[in-house]
Simulated assay, not measured.
Amino acid sequence: MKTLCVGRFLLDVPAGTTVNPGYVYAKKKVETATGVSTERFRQQVAAREAALAAASHRLGGSMSVSQTRIDEDAVLLTSWVSDTSKAGHRQELYVLDRAHGVRYLVSGETDAAKLPAAIENYRALRPRISYRDPATIPTAAGFCIDSGFIAGNRINSEEMTIGLRPRAYPGARMTLMSYVTGRPDRPLLQRSSDLPPEYAAAQAKMRNLRRGERDVGPIQGQEILAHAEEGGKRMYAFLWESQGRAESLQFPFLSLQLLTEEQAAPAAAFGNDAEALAAWDQVLGSLRLRPGAI
Results as ranks from 00 to 15, higher is better:
residue 145 I to K: 04
residue 242 S to Q: 10
residue 85 S to W: 05
residue 189 L to I: 07
residue 46 A to L: 14
residue 248 S to E: 03
residue 151 A to G: 11
residue 140 A to G: 09
residue 161 T to F: 07
residue 12 D to T: 13
residue 138 P to F: 03
residue 131 Y to H: 12
residue 162 I to K: 00
residue 41 F to H: 04
residue 246 A to Y: 03
residue 10 L to N: 11
residue 21 P to F: 01
residue 99 A to H: 01
residue 230 E to D: 13
residue 111 D to T: 07
residue 50 A to L: 11
residue 251 F to S: 10
residue 274 A to K: 10
residue 220 Q to P: 08
residue 259 L to E: 13
residue 279 A to N: 01
residue 21 P to S: 04
residue 112 A to Y: 12
residue 42 R to C: 06
residue 22 G to Q: 11
residue 134 P to C: 10
residue 19 V to G: 00
residue 48 R to G: 01
residue 76 L to Q: 10
residue 269 A to G: 02
residue 232 G to D: 08
residue 128 R to D: 06
residue 222 Q to G: 07
residue 36 V to N: 01
residue 109 E to R: 11
residue 263 Q to A: 15
residue 148 G to R: 00
residue 129 I to Q: 04
residue 265 A to R: 12
residue 36 V to M: 04
residue 110 T to W: 11
residue 188 L to Q: 06
residue 27 K to C: 07
residue 252 P to E: 03
residue 81 V to C: 09
residue 203 Q to S: 14
residue 164 L to A: 04
residue 246 A to K: 09
residue 14 P to W: 11
residue 66 S to N: 07
residue 89 H to V: 01
residue 114 K to D: 14
residue 78 T to C: 05
residue 144 C to F: 01
residue 215 D to M: 03
residue 37 S to R: 07
residue 156 N to I: 03
residue 188 L to N: 06
residue 68 T to V: 14
residue 68 T to Y: 12
residue 74 A to K: 04
residue 98 R to S: 15
residue 68 T to S: 12
residue 50 A to P: 04
residue 105 L to H: 03
residue 267 A to G: 07
residue 98 R to W: 11
residue 292 G to D: 08
residue 90 R to P: 01
residue 182 G to A: 09
residue 100 H to C: 08
